[in-house]
Write a protein that binds this DNA or RNA. Structure first.
Length: 274
DNA sequence: GGACGATCAATCTCATCTAT
DNA sequence: ATAGATGAGATTGATCGTCC
């Protein structure tokens, strides 16, 4: 990878389903050597979508880990093969019911999803997050450390400017993505975890606590963000269970026995395929 | 530059669970 | 029995990108 040209890097991106990034990488002339030298901040500036950032950083990290013991392949296809092998090994490890069992439900969309109704970007981000969760879930501690925000957010925070709508969304998006690393594939943080994160945010940036009720507003925004991520999910045991439990509205009757049985069968299928 | 559609946070309402 | 917490679906409104 170290010797790759910009074109080789771009073809590697396409192979890794990151074709959307090709134009930016060409503009910034990111060669193989440059790719390996990217730090978190550069990746954040270079790549707009969090999901893509996560995948890219993960791939680079894996490549570096691989090359510590192995000689680096000289072309993108070989490198991709090394990474696929690594990913497959991780899949085998994490799919073992003994090692993870019910804590690791399948994150991949079922075949019968109605494409038009599903936010593909959320699903894509979820797959990325799952992949990271499989790599290694981080240990949650009460002294939660805020993630490295992108440059524009850091500027806003440094200037203590009240964030506008889009900036609030970006902060929440980053916090949600960061929290997910600690959740072992779950999309249900505990109340304590929400509290820890919002407390860390407001302690670091007290000006975000507008008129004294900032804590509740940020916490609610964070919870809603997780809710939004869960919404299109139809293949996660925990999400399906809660949708069965809570997912009916006024005017709708509770699910019939047959419907409940169908959901139970679906859960079993998910467990078996996980 | 205006119309339009897509996205997504915010909000509302309701169902369920749990502690008292 | 009841209040509070939590999670769901539905709706609304702001924002952003695209098209003509």
């Amino acid at each position: 990878m170290e010797t790759w040209s910009v074109e080789q890097v771009c073809s590697w991106l396409v192979e890794k389903n990151l074709g959307e990034l090709v134009q930016r990488f060409q503009e910034e002339e990111v060669s193989g050597a440059a790719l390996l030298a990217l730090n978190d901040r550069m990746v954040q500036q270079l790549v707009k979508k969090i999901g893509h950032q996560a995948v890219l950083m993960d791939l680079i990290k894996k490549y570096k880990q691989n090359t510590q013991g192995l000689k680096s392949p000289e072309n993108p296809k070989e490198a991709a093969l090394v990474m696929q092998t690594e990913a497959a090994r991780e899949d085998e490890e994490t799919s073992s019911p003994v090692s993870h069992g019910e804590q690791m439900p399948s994150f991949y969309p079922s075949e019968n999803l109605e494409d038009g109704l599903i936010d593909q970007r959320v699903l894509k981000q979820r797959r990325n997050v799952k992949h990271l969760a499989r790599s290694k879930a981080l240990q949650w501690t009460k002294s939660y450390v805020l993630p490295e925000f992108p440059y524009d957010v850091k500027c806003m925070l440094a200037e203590q400017k009240c964030p506008d709508h889009s900036m609030r969304i970006r902060i929440i998006e980053f916090l949600q993505a960061d929290m997910t690393k600690y959740l072992e594939g779950s999309l249900y943080p505990s109340t304590q975890q929400y509290n820890d994160v919002v407390n860390a945010l407001l302690q670091a940036h007290p000006f975000l606590d507008e008129d004294g009720c900032g804590f509740f507003l940020w916490k609610r925004a964070l919870k809603d963000r997780f809710k939004y991520v869960r919404r299109p999910i139809e293949d996660d045991e925990q999400v399906i269970r809660n949708k069965c439990k809570f997912g009916h509205r006024k005017g709708q009757t509770r699910k019939s026995i047959a419907d409940i049985r169908f959901d139970e069968i679906k859960l079993v299928q998910i467990k078996l395929s996980a």
